[in-house]
């Protein structure tokens, strides 16, 4: 049954493309990888496998100059697990610039904003999720309504969102709704070599996704980021977050979580050979504390790799990843990640 539904969803773009031939676009991406465990990661040292991280299929359709829609299917496929698929996005954008300059309203199942924006900064979702997503701090998509503004001349953007709360894989269990706001600014956008420098801030006022909760059962998040970049040669970013949660009804105290992610890349845009122009050296270090009241539970994550953009829409990235939770054995993995876009 699931397979039938999956095929139906995958065929949906073809249906849409015939209905809205002129203004409908289909795109997608897939994240296959090869993994070799260098330490005992549970399946034994030397365990290796080919697998598929994700497949996304997007359909976007411009209904008029003011109104457009997007539908995205998310196929979460691991070779050794049953296939899961979701509707990740299904929203309508209404450009309201006629009434409020630079503004858009978005209604439906949509990105929660911060994670999607950080994925653009990180640029390698096919290799690893970003800090808040990787540690399950925030869902990347949810049902709701948002007001979005793009500052003129590329100075950045800001959004205000009114969301369901449990995310795109969950269902509403209570009467509470979540509110969040974020901004990104590019203060040096007029200096081409420094245009990618960026600052961002995020606040999420949420509630537990369980039933029978009170307004004290909060799920609040605060995050900030800064990027320093020069000339397309290097880009370094830091992201920090803090979270306060009182998930269970009757709980008397918040659990506090925090984390920091540092990542960067070095590229060679002035290289003479086209091969070197397509190469990026990538590194990342995450530190995550799931409970500030508990000692020795910090989790560290290190990634180092070389990314090669073979052609437009096809990237390869051999990389080394280390995960280490205090008091547990280090897990080292070699992964060859690939990105296919169409």
């Amino acid at each position: 049954m699931k397979i039938r539904i999956l095929f139906s969803l995958l065929l949906l773009p073809l249906y849409f493309s015939s209905v809205f031939a002129a203004d409908t676009k289909i795109s997608g991406e897939s994240y296959p990888f090869y993994q070799l465990d260098l330490t005992n990661n549970g399946s034994g040292k030397g365990y290796n496998k080919f697998d598929l991280g994700r497949v996304y299929v997007n359909v976007t359709s411009k209904l008029s100059d003011e109104v457009s829609i997007r539908v995205t299917m998310d196929v979460d496929k691991m070779a050794n697990e049953p296939r899961d698929f979701y509707l990740k996005y299904a929203y309508l954008d209404w450009n309201i610039e006629k009434f409020i300059p630079y503004s858009t309203l978005r209604f439906g199942l949509q990105s929660t904003g911060w994670i999607g924006s950080m994925e653009k900064v990180w640029g390698r979702r096919y290799v690893a999720k970003v800090l808040l997503d990787q540690n399950g701090i925030l869902s990347s998509a949810d049902y709701g309504l948002s007001y979005n503004i793009n500052f003129p001349s590329g100075y950045g953007n800001a959004s205000l969102l009114y969301l369901q709360g449990p995310g795109y894989k969950g269902k509403e269990e209570n009467r509470f709704k979540d509110i969040s706001a974020f901004f990104f600014v590019r203060p040096l956008v007029k200096l081409p070599d420094f245009a990618a420098c960026m600052l961002g801030g995020y606040y999420y006022k949420g509630y537990s996704d369980k039933t029978d909760i009170t307004s004290e059962n909060n799920k609040d998040r605060l995050a900030g980021m800064a990027t320093f970049a020069y000339g397309g040669i290097f880009k370094f970013t830091t992201e920090y977050f803090k979270a306060w949660e009182r998930i269970d009804p009757g709980a008397s105290k918040d659990t506090e979580k925090d984390g920091i992610s540092l990542f960067g890349e070095i590229k060679f845009p002035m290289a003479k050979t086209s091969f070197l122009k397509k190469i990026a050296l990538v590194g990342r270090y995450d530190l995550y504390d799931p409970d500030s009241d508990t000692e020795n539970d910090e989790q560290r994550y290190i990634l180092a790799g070389v990314e090669w953009e073979v052609i437009e829409g096809f990237n390869l990235m051999p990389n080394f990843q280390r995960t280490k939770t205090e008091g547990e054995k280090t897990k080292d993995t070699f992964i060859l990640n690939a990105l296919f876009k169409f």
Binding site: K120, N150, P152, S153, G154, R186, V189, K190, L191, P192, D193, F194, A195, A196, A229, G231, G232, K235, K267, P269
Partner: peptide, 17 residues
């Protein structure tokens, strides 16, 4: 266009001059 400038920034890591 602003969108094109944004694409240069996203893809090339620098602003359009």
């Amino acid at each position: 266009k602003d969108k094109e400038k944004e694409n240069v920034l996203e893809k090339r890591g620098v602003g359009a001059n």
